[in-house]
């Protein structure tokens, strides 16, 4: 079984982002970049399937700047066998390559590579759209198990437990299928130094937008990006009685 794992280069989740002063976007210069955390969970799940003998090959793919090679090398160090970078100068967080274009690109790669399973993050932590996996499912006419907290493969079926608003739901999917990861699917491993060294020798192929036959022209114009109104920190109270007094008489919420 071949598994495709898309990975996105995003601002590291610990970074407190800053909106550019001209309100055209978010400052990305000299900011720590990482693999989108949900994609890291997707990679871990794929690697575990390979270790269990279920998967034969893991292909990591990223759409982004040449520097996204760093994230693909990390994916290779985690256990992907080879990587594909679709290189673009366009922004990948806002106002550039959008989920629909990403889904179309991934479709062309999935078909060319003949993969049986795509595991990917449920959303990227930059534009927070939560669309790409579902769009890819529709374009390929494959079933989807989104927001997965458990994945079991048995024969030609995938059993996926999903985190939904009311609790948990389990669906059965006929492969080929798409699984998008939620936080509790697994805990990604730390990459070890020898694996980083080995990853340098693994193949990394670079494609251009033209090679994919998909237009990256955005459909949404980003009119502006602004900083949300800051919540001013309030006051400290020194007792439960003082708190109750404030809630009743000042805030009037109880």
């Amino acid at each position: 079984m071949k598994i495709l794992v898309p990975v996105k280069r995003v601002v590291d989740y610990n970074v407190k982002i800053r909106v550019k002063s001209d309100e055209t976007g978010v400052e990305l210069a000299n900011v720590k970049m990482s693999i989108n955390p949900f994609d890291e969970i997707a990679l871990e799940e794929a690697v575990r399937l390979k270790e269990a003998g279920t998967a034969s090959e893991i292909i990591a793919v990223s759409i982004g700047p040449d520097k996204a090679q760093e994230q693909l090398r990390t994916a290779l160090a985690m256990g992907a066998d080879r990587a594909i970078l679709v290189s673009t100068d366009k922004a990948i967080d806002l106002g550039g390559v959008e989920p629909l274009a990403v889904a179309k690109t991934l479709k062309s790669i999935a078909e060319k590579e003949g993969v049986d399973l795509i595991i990917m993050g449920k959303q990227s932590i930059d534009d927070d759209s939560n669309q790409t996996g579902q769009m890819l499912g529709a374009l390929l006419d494959w079933p989807q198990g989104t927001f997965a907290s458990e994945l079991k493969l048995d024969g030609g079926k995938a059993s996926v437990t999903r985190e939904i608003d009311g609790g948990l739901e389990t669906v059965s999917l006929t492969l080929p299928a798409i699984v998008t990861t939620d936080l509790r699917l697994n805990e990604p491993r730390y990459v070890k130094l020898p694996d980083i060294m080995k990853a340098k020798k693994k193949p990394l192929e670079t494609l251009s937008e033209d090679d994919t036959g998909v237009s990256f022209a955005p459909r949404l114009e980003v009119v502006k990006v602004s900083t949300p109104p800051a919540r001013s920190g309030g006051i400290k109270v020194d007792s439960v009685d003082a708190l109750l007094d404030k809630l009743k008489n000042e805030a009037k919420v109880i």
Partner: peptide, 23 residues
């Protein structure tokens, strides 16, 4: 934009060839 809408609507958008606006 609940788990229901998030799960379903992007599939609709893709088939309509529309870039969805989330949330």
């Amino acid at each position: 934009a609940t788990s229901f809408g998030k799960n379903t609507l992007p599939r609709v958008a893709a088939l309509l060839d529309v870039q969805q606006i989330s949330d």
